[in-house]
């Protein structure tokens, strides 16, 4: 993204729109800070500028293009064919059965709900979970950025790229899940230079309840009263 200085009337209305705070008034010129911008495209789509001064470059070069792919929800991830953060996670679990009973899925999302994240922090998480011997959910764009699956290392040239968010998805045996949570909380709070959310995906029991949610509460985890539930609709036709 950039601002066409010939068109900009310096009304400053675009400044608060940027979720990264990348649009700034510097030396009486409104500019987009190239380093802070994650190419999410909000300033452009928002149509905040009546002069049309906010513009997209014709082509974003590699590795910077990774910023757009991981930050602009309108972009599709080539590796998975999914828009947004590029993963269907539990949303189609009634079709994929990726998350089965006995295993708990973890989504560790860097950069959310605010601030974005550098991929060097993503690599730290990938190296940590790789060292813990967990299973990766393969159908995830982050997985395709890993160059060395024995260490979790990413391509070196992308480590300095910043994205709005990126999700690490792993599967952990249910009996190890509480230990995983404890260790990851310690790690995320001490090792990362960004905000991160952690969430769990768990298959319901045969009556539709969540045994794992009860387990989390017993261990003192403060679960939000709200969340997401796949209600098995894709299976309705099969049951008939």
């Amino acid at each position: 993204m950039y601002i066409d200085q010939e068109l900009c009337k310096k009304c400053l209305d675009c400044i608060p729109v940027c979720p990264m705070g990348a649009i700034r008034l510097q030396k009486k010129i409104v500019t987009i800070d190239y380093e802070t911008c994650v190419e999410c495209g909000v300033c452009y789509r928002f149509e905040i500028c009546p002069e049309g001064a906010i513009k997209q470059v014709d082509e974003i070069p590699y590795p910077r293009i990774i910023r757009a792919v991981f930050s602009d929800p309108v972009q599709r991830h080539e590796a998975t064919g999914v828009q947004g953060r590029g993963t269907e996670e539990m949303k189609t679990n009634d079709v994929t059965n990726l998350f089965q009973r006995g295993k708990v899925g973890f989504s560790i999302e860097l950069g959310r709900p605010v601030g974005g994240a550098y991929l060097r922090d993503l690599e730290k998480v990938l190296k940590k979970v790789t060292s813990m011997g967990v299973e990766f959910a393969g159908d995830n764009p982050v997985y395709h950025l890993i160059t060395d699956h024995t260490t979790g290392a990413l391509r070196p040239e992308i480590l300095g790229e910043k994205v709005l968010s990126a999700i690490v998805e792993v599967l952990v045996p249910e009996q190890q899940a509480m230990d995983f949570i404890r260790e990851m909380k310690r790690f995320l709070n001490s090792e990362l230079d960004c905000v991160v959310t952690m969430s769990v995906i768990s298959r319901a029991d045969s009556e539709g309840g969540s045994r794992f949610m009860e387990q989390l509460r017993r261990h003192g985890e403060s679960i939000y009263p709200n969340g997401k539930v796949n209600i098995g609709m894709a299976l309705v036709g099969e049951e008939s």
Partner: peptide
Amino acid sequence: LKEHTYHMSLGIFGKT
């Protein structure tokens, strides 16, 4: 219908 799969947030961590 019955719930099939749950997704629950454990909260916000890191540089809170």
